[in-house]
Amino acid sequence: MNIFRLTGDLSHLAAIIILLLKIWKTRSCAGISGKSQVLFALVFTTRYLDLLTSFISLYNTTMKIIYIGCAYATVYLIYMKFKATYDGNHDTFRVEFLVVPVGGLAFLVNHDFSPLEILWTFSIYLESVAILPQLFMISKTGEAETITTHYLFFLGLYRALYLINWIWRFYFEGFFDMIAIVAGVVQTILYCDFFYLYVTKGESGSNKINPA
């Protein structure tokens, strides 16, 4: 565990909590893509099946349970509790265009052709593109609330920190996971445009981000 990995995990946790609290406090999930949140719940579920097969550390287990729990809580708030505020008309990204190719790729390119490993690979690939419905929704409506942009910022920061973590681990531990790294780079690139807007628009005092 290095500082980049730890702050990356905490940044990821911050993003998840920020979104959950925003929906809870405002009693509304307007502007939030339920589809992205379902994909993230699917990502955590398929990746953390190893909770049942191997124990790594108390930290690892605890964080996995928190991530999964928060992901399902978010999906519950969007599709059940605050369903009336869900902006489904603007959440029109076709997720099958992500899930099907990603599923196929996980079968073809993996470390080991076993059920758990294929599901892990699927989750890695899917995570890299799971935010697309959310970004698509923002580009469609032309704006995002400040809190939503903070959520995206921490998600992007988590990815960037993980990249540094992998460079660190390569030099100091000889650790190298090609699948995680390639998917991580793709995922980070998807956030770059958003990062630029976040920084430039954020400083202008405007509380809206227009990605167009």
């Binding site: 190893d50 790594i56 470390h111 076993s114 758990l116 973590n165 996971d177």
Partner: peptide
Amino acid sequence: AEGEAVHDEL
């Protein structure tokens, strides 16, 4: 399976 990778990251 034997030699299966353990993924220690989140």
